[in-house]
Amino acid sequence: MRRLSAPALLRWTARTFGDDAATRVFEPLVADWQRERRGAPTVPRRVMRDLSAMAALVATAAHVAARLAEPWHLPRHDVEAIGRTLVIYAATGLALGLVPFVLVPVVSDPLRLAFLARMAPAVLAVSLAVALLPTAAAIARRSRGGWPTRAPWLLTLVTALSMAALVAHLGWVVPAVNRQYQEHAVSGGAGRVIGLSRDVKALTLAELVAGHPPAGVHPRVTGPARRHEAWQRLALATAWPATFAWFGWRLARYRRSLGVAAVAGWWTLAFVTTLLMSFGGLGGIIVSAGTWTVAAAMLRRQTAAPGLDDVATPASPHWSARR
């Protein structure tokens, strides 16, 4: 394994956090670390000092990242304009995403609120990701000074929100619904019969939230329900990776290392999503693999083009932001 040198570490911090942070914050840290390391009398002492310095490096990186994500260092009207853009696009995406489920004729039950509640986190996650494009444009319009360094971190926060919504959806709502389906599919008996996909469209919100089998509910998966679910899986297998790829492509324009890390994270999540939603279905995996290939090609094309990193100027005579 190649050893990480101090100049390589500083080049990475310059690419990720900007030249100013690399020069003012990380360079003194690394210089003190080097000097402390040389003064260590024994190997165990040197190892202890290395561990302490590495912990300090991680803590410092976390502090700098948190500081770069602070939007309140911008003028208030700029923050408001950027926030407004994000909220408007996310709310529009949420409303548009839920419209098909509101209008589906087969769902005539007045208790469809439960179904909308089930879908809302997933739709919100998608709409937040889609809102990143206009938000990034709003940030770019207001770019001044170090804002190009700040922008990817703000976008990363929005992505984290989006992922949290998705995790809430996949980690809590879907398992709760599936558990109800499985229990009732086995028990059967007389009572209310549900024939829709994943049996949730006729559940009340209270039944959904409780996570317990409602008395007398007997789901029955019908042909239309299966087709509906197949389309849902297809949409998830294509829309997610495409959204993730777009995000990484956009992010890579500002900072390549962050963009690549974001795409890796998004793709992992997309893969897990696909597996969870298709329960091992070969079709979903093939479709998502195809989408990922296109996404990878998009990213490769983008990272081959000149970005902001290429115009960064060397910040120190002891290391350079450019290799």
């Binding site: 003012r24 990380f26 003194p28 912990a55 300090a56 803590a59 410092t60 502090h63 700098v64 500081r67």
Partner: peptide, 15 residues
């Protein structure tokens, strides 16, 4: 003073 925060503080004070 902690090693994980002192460099950030010094950078901000210099700024």
């Amino acid at each position: 003073l902690k090693r994980g925060t002192v460099y950030v503080t010094l950078g901000r004070m210099e700024e």
